[in-house]
Design a protein around this nucleic acid. Sequence first.
DNA 1: CAGCCAGTTGATAGATCGCTCTACTTAATG
DNA 2: CATTAAGTAGAGCGATCTATCAACTGGCTG
Lengths: 206, 206
Amino acid sequence: MTGIDTRERIVSASAELFGRQGYHATGVKEIVAAARAPFGSIYHFFPGGKEELGAEAIRRSGAIYGELIDAFFGPAPDLVTAVGDSFAGAAEQLRDTDFADACPIATIALEVASISEPLRQATAEVFESWIATASARFTGAGLPAGRARELVIAMLSGLEGAFVLARALRSTEPVEIAGRAAVEATRLALAAAANERHEIPGTVPT
Amino acid sequence: MTGIDTRERIVSASAELFGRQGYHATGVKEIVAAARAPFGSIYHFFPGGKEELGAEAIRRSGAIYGELIDAFFGPAPDLVTAVGDSFAGAAEQLRDTDFADACPIATIALEVASISEPLRQATAEVFESWIATASARFTGAGLPAGRARELVIAMLSGLEGAFVLARALRSTEPVEIAGRAAVEATRLALAAAANERHEIPGTVPT
DNA sequence: CAGCCAGTTGATAGATCGCTCTACTTAATG
DNA sequence: CATTAAGTAGAGCGATCTATCAACTGGCTG
């Protein structure tokens, strides 16, 4: 048995615990217990200690969620459906886990924003990558790059904030409401883009 | 000098530190240092310890921010302006404090959601009170109660999520984008409500 | 097989956590 | 003035935190 399995278990257990309880509420001992790993292995694989492990857990969670974007946007017949499905999926996940699993890095992001620069950067990179991945879907559907980015940031803000409210209120209502708002905004943006292309093709934008 | 001042200093220092660093990252010793209060006073005024102090800090922050809603919506000429000003004010606050002061309870809300039921309830009450306060402004402007609540939750989600992104990315861009989306949604909702009242007054809703 | 080293391990150090406790000061009351 | 209550003050407790480090393992080489 090689230690690579151990390392893997540590990272995924960390990602799960950090995401649910937050960074400071999760102890290293708790992590090794959940990962069924020896205590010392943490510092063998992550000489930088808890902070280095945190950064890797953040990036791991970010990558998994990033793939989820494509999983929702790939098979859907159109963008509006994909957006709606994404929020519905988020609400379902929330319900299934008794409001424990929402965004895996939002809690950490707020916790470390003013405390640890390396961890803050890790969360920033993840958010940026999500925005880039999702934006690509919208530019692919005909939206100008700037407009796509703006729409994605608005929807991601809505989702993240809905998670905050949902976990506090123990209700999926905010996610459903934010989802409807996102669907509507997507519909409007796509219509506006189509309008601009077909109806006033010769006009020169200022 | 009576101890009420001490109690007050403890609560406001707690609210500030919890809001910026989170609940678990803020120690009781750090609080008394910031409040220039004796350590024992914490347990004199808050026999329930850190958790009771946390609950009071949450409610305190919630009350202050609740008043802020009226401060923005009172003097504004119309709701759309008020919504825009609120987000602009949030962005300014973020910039002025080097992205330290966003929503005073969002961090705590995520941290404690799955850990402490009393604290989770405190955050839930605060969010509900904000929603009620803001909804009143929108029903007052002619929106049906259900639609007002939905609009407010969508905007609050957008704001909270924008705070998450803004602090992580160290940029006010998400707040500005969420603000534009909120303004647009408000405009549409008000127009739809006016439309319904004037153009099809005789129809009976299902 | 001896020697060696990368990889692995948990006991433990050292700091800090929330909290309790006792002692002291001040203010108000009989 | 004596008594009581309220608030001030910090030493120190057990628990828990992150991190270290010496000991151990298994496999490879001379």
